[in-house]
Amino acid sequence: MSIQLPQKKATKAVPKDSTKTSIWSFMNRDIQFFEPKFGIKKKLVLYGQLETLLGSGLDIQASLELIEQSFKKKQDQALIRGLKESIVKGKSLSESMAELGKFSIYEQYSVQIGEETGRLHLILRDLSSFFEKTLSYQRQLTGALAYPVFVLSFSVLAVLFLLRYLVPMFSGIYGRFKQELPSLTQMVVNLSGWVGVLMPYLLISVLLLIVGAYSQREKLWYRKMMGWVLSHIPLFGGIIQKVYLSRFCQAMALLLAAGVPLLNALKLVQQMINFYPVSSSLKKTEQAVFQGAQLHEVLSQFDFYPPQALALIKVGEESGKLDMMFERLARQYTEEVDQQTAVIGSLIEPVLIVFLGGIVAVILVAMYLPLFKMSTSMGF
């Protein structure tokens, strides 16, 4: 049996993996906010239903006809219909997937292995499991980042609103009395004046920053910089690292368990995970392993991989159970991410609320302080 990894020339029409459509597109493409036309959730449904139907004895054509009816959107139905029509013309499922250009090389290669080994329904089960876990990783990451980002953004908008509209109303009233304002009040009034002047430029700068980041997202320097930034965010850097470690370990476990050679597995995972610390290290690792180096020895050269993970990978290489060790690591990191996000979420919520309340309180006290001072001087 000969299983060939799809070559670059043959997959020229295949777009990048749908998991690379960004939740924070200006930060990292692996984290999704808006799912692509045929994204992770839909692939999870496709592979799960196809595995169930094939396992029940239906042929692939009849299975795809039933799956087509389960999708509501016409574009999704057209995609499944395209797979079915290509198979009717005599092509294999993996060839049909490559022809449509909506599936990653990892998916094509996995299905090709299933077809040539007679284990297609098992490979489909693995693909369904992979996308289920990928969706879980994304939810973990967005769950860790979404709430703090939302609260901080709301805080900034609330403060800008107070400084831009509320403070000028009070300062106009106090200006009629022609009295010296308390230091705190004067400082807030001056800050309000600066905000009024700089706000248009601030909004334009933020817009240009987002557009510039989106246009540069493919560049090496940008990917390297954002990889470093995401890995060093206070409190969340460690969680982000473990999310990608879990994705790496889960992908390696599925590929190795399916019988994919280690070199091919490393090449495929590079294409699946666009996070720079992972993809760049795997590219160098693939070259070193090809020259005869041990996987754990090469990975130990990169700070991204913890010593505990390297120790288990070493045991897996020596025992011939590398896929089981990667599966164990994936479960371990997933559990750690769940625990850490729960703890940080419970701690950061009151901190952010107190922070926002404190800023608003300072502004309000500063605005009412002259009134208190005037009432005191008048003997009330």
Rank of each mutant, 00 (worst) to 15 (best):
N264Q: 13
W24K: 02
E286L: 09
V289W: 04
A146T: 09
W194A: 14
L64S: 04
F290Y: 14
K373F: 07
I233H: 00
K41D: 08
A146P: 07
L356V: 15
K242R: 07
L209Y: 07
R125D: 14
V298I: 13
Q301H: 11
K84T: 10
E95G: 05
G48T: 08
Y106G: 03
E68K: 09
I87E: 05
S171Y: 04
M378Y: 10
F275M: 04
R29N: 11
F372C: 05
V354I: 12
K12W: 14
V354A: 11
G114K: 00
R139I: 12
S280Q: 12
D323L: 06
Q61A: 11
F131K: 02
V151W: 03
I348S: 02
S2R: 10
I67K: 01
K37D: 13
G237P: 07
L54E: 03
F177L: 14
K283D: 12
L262M: 09
L44F: 12
I210M: 08
V197F: 12
K42F: 09
E297R: 05
W228R: 03
I348G: 03
A311I: 12
L208P: 09
E68Y: 10
D126H: 09
L64K: 00
T334P: 08
G227C: 03
I123S: 06
Y368A: 07
R139C: 06
V360T: 05
A251S: 14
N190C: 09
L364T: 10
M1I: 11
R223A: 08
E99K: 07
V269F: 03
E65H: 05
E349Q: 12
F150K: 01
I31L: 13
Y147C: 04
S25N: 10
L198F: 10
S192F: 12
L181I: 05
R125Y: 13
W194V: 12
K42N: 04
S280M: 11
L312K: 01
A253C: 06
K20T: 13
Q308E: 15
Y147Q: 00
I359L: 15
S155K: 00
I204L: 15
I210P: 09
T142Y: 08
R331H: 09
F170W: 02
L369E: 04
G175P: 08
E218T: 06
H296M: 07
E107R: 00
S205N: 02
